[in-house]
Amino acid sequence: MTEYKMFQGCTIGNRIPFLEASARMVFDKLGIKTSEGPFACCPDPVGFNSVDHTSWLAMGARNLTIAEAEEKDIISLCNGCFQTLKLVNKELSHDEHEREKINKILGEVGKEFKGTINVKHFVEVLHEVGEEKIKESIKNDLSGLKVACHTGCHYNRPSEIVQTDDPLKPVKLREIVAATGATPVDYDEEVLCCGAGVGNTEEEPAMQILANKLSSAMNAGAEAIIVNCPACFQQFDTNQKKAEKQTGNSYGLPVLYVTELLALAFGMKPDDMGIKFHRTRPKDLLEKHNLA
């Protein structure tokens, strides 16, 4: 079995590590092996790349060389890290001019980008493990639970490069969710961004986008939002109150990482995965579906 280099990223690793707890529980159960590495920030495809593209390429390439040295692929728990590492890997593998430029920079610290490994999003890996294997581990059938899937933007776009899923109608997250027995609802704003990016610049439009998304999910009957990115998670979970305040709507819609949903379906306990650290409390939802 292949072993991946774990890339949890700054947000999960150093701010909301409970998301990593459920991911590791699920990986263990499904036989996905990982090991640690001394990675720096990916760096952020929205933030750092907007400051200086060359610095972004060089830092991304440095991270890739760490995995290359062990000849292991990277598994990312975050859309942002995934997109950065995938884009940098691709750009430097195919553009000799850029590769030479970046390798000259990396040469200063004795490193060289070779382009010998692959970068994967954890949803891709779970999907490869497959519905059958997931079903074998289910202890709590989640039939009756209706959820809205939100893959977020940097998981499946730009599709020509990341090649994970359909760019405007992603299916893998839905299929993983459906394997637990839960029902992914159809909602109009499924591919709409969570709004986190514009929030770096101005809060008001970010909360408007978030509110549109939440309203659409609720109108479709969703009892929870399922995400696979820590930036989206924080936007939905932490900022939900702000969106309520700005629009006067009330949502109270719990947000679960897809690995939390799987771990709950596998019969693991909410306390063991730190679900109490969620800001939008999923307590009622868990009780209703006998998962508490």
């Binding site: 907007s50 730009p158 990016g197 929030g199």
Partner: peptide, 15 residues
Amino acid sequence: NFGIWGCTVCDTCDE
């Protein structure tokens, strides 16, 4: 300068 910094970088336009 919201005219450039307002982009939420969802990459939908590229697609």
